[in-house]
Design a protein around this nucleic acid. Structure first.
Lengths: 240, 240
DNA sequence: ATGATTTTTGAATGAGGTTCATAATTGCTC
DNA sequence: GAGCAATTATGAACCTCATTCAAAAATCAT
């Protein structure tokens, strides 16, 4: 049963990658899977429900990238930045996923999914939060972070929002260009450094020293994400 | 002609506020405006096109709040924070608008609108960017800000992304609660302070001193946004 | 083998976005 | 102001799907 659900989702994902979210049709999907429409609807209460399920499933892939960052033997500040980089790389590698995730987390779509499905989605996102929180905890223990006002989750909420927000801005084609903001993901890295500096997360990064920032990025790419093309790295020189 | 377009948009907005974005029907809208469906389609190439037009129009209301912040006789750092607060207040005052804006800036919807409509939307958003950029310029002149790596727009991109991102996270019901992040807008203020500190935007704010932050917020509320209920202010004590 | 229960099916339903042939109106000329 | 051309408005018809549900098929229990 769970197997068939996965089967449906596999094919739905393939269809979305070919034809976009808007063109996914329940009847086509059922036909492609050689099941009837009714059977499809036994698994998903609605199309939106299926989309949320799909987005939920992809969290796993994202997590595996994040985990490299969390498990890295490096100062906590580097590790948290590596998470941001993982986020960026994944967004560039699977733009369809981000498009879907964004569409799904829209109030309009989110609320159209079943309550159970939403709960499952929230549960699935927990490991991502846990992972980031664990880095914060390490940072507190090692003395890299001294803040006492915010708990582990709250501390990262700004960084989280910033990443999410930049993805949103990027996906509205033309918006950033219209506002003279090219290379959004390079900027995201710089702004993330600024935020982490502001939170007093040691070791601080000199924002005026682009070379130092690039070297760190390149190191993370080499040590954690070496299978990604260098062009994916939002460094100062490359036009990402 | 432009008058009739505005007429359509007025009624569309009213209908969305009553019944939500998903329940807006082109035929109902036309009927309510006492025009035929065909006439409606002379103004908007599709439903998505209309939604983008609607979102575009609402930028004006948002702008008027931002302008108070920009025109305020106060240090630039206070003014930029006032912009963030204006954003939050507007989001709380017009949740329908933000829901719409978010829905519309989804790749899926955005790309379904006509090219011309998208251009208009981008143009309409310029004043918001200009306004923020002008504050940055003042900050550079007065010496509050010394960064030389980023231009005026780029400098604020992180703050912009952070605000957008937090709105996104808030609108996915249950997501923040699931991650132990209550009172998102209070957090947004704190994180904005952290980011501004990191950018070295003077005068720096002591992140550990919640009282000082609250006093600033209350001052902005009193001097700029006194018609808003105090409960709208995301201060430390109130449970927003 | 037979009846009961569960699962599957896909044609039918219905909702609603979009189109386009027709009708109405406006503008122009003599 | 009559006649004609050009423009604009109309809304029924069309078409695309998501969703449902009565009937058929498959499975299980005795």
């Amino acid at each position: 049963m769970a197997e068939r659900e996965a089967f449906f989702l596999d094919h739905a994902w393939a269809m979305i990658q070919n034809e976009g979210v808007l063109n996914l049709q329940m009847a086509k999907l059922a036909h492609r899977c050689e099941y009837s429409v009714g059977t499809l609807y036994q698994h998903f209460t609605s199309k939106e429900d299926l989309l949320v399920a799909l987005a939920t499933r992809s969290v796993g892939q994202r997590l595996s990238l994040y985990q490299r960052a969390a498990a890295w033997q490096a100062p906590t500040r580097f590790r948290i930045l590596a998470v941001v980089l993982a986020d960026i790389l994944f967004a560039q590698q699977s733009p369809e996923y981000f498009q879907l995730a964004q569409y799904v987390s829209t109030h309009t779509i989110w609320m159209a999914a079943s309550h159970e499905r939403r709960e499952l989605a929230l549960e699935a996102s927990q490991p991502l939060g846990d992972l980031v929180a664990s880095i914060v905890q390490d940072a507190r223990h090692s003395g890299d972070m001294q803040d006492s006002q915010l708990n582990d989750r709250e501390l990262c909420s700004g960084l989280w929002a910033m990443c999410e927000g930049m993805h949103s801005l990027v996906s509205a084609a033309g918006l950033l260009e219209a506002h003279s903001v090219p290379r959004p993901y390079q900027l995201l890295i710089i702004q993330a450094h600024a935020l982490l500096n502001g939170l007093n997360w040691q070791p601080l990064m000199d924002l005026q020293d682009a070379g130092q920032q690039d070297r760190l990025l390149e190191r993370i790419m080499a040590e954690l994400f070496d299978e990604f093309p260098l062009s994916a790295c939002p460094a100062g020189s490359s036009p990402v």
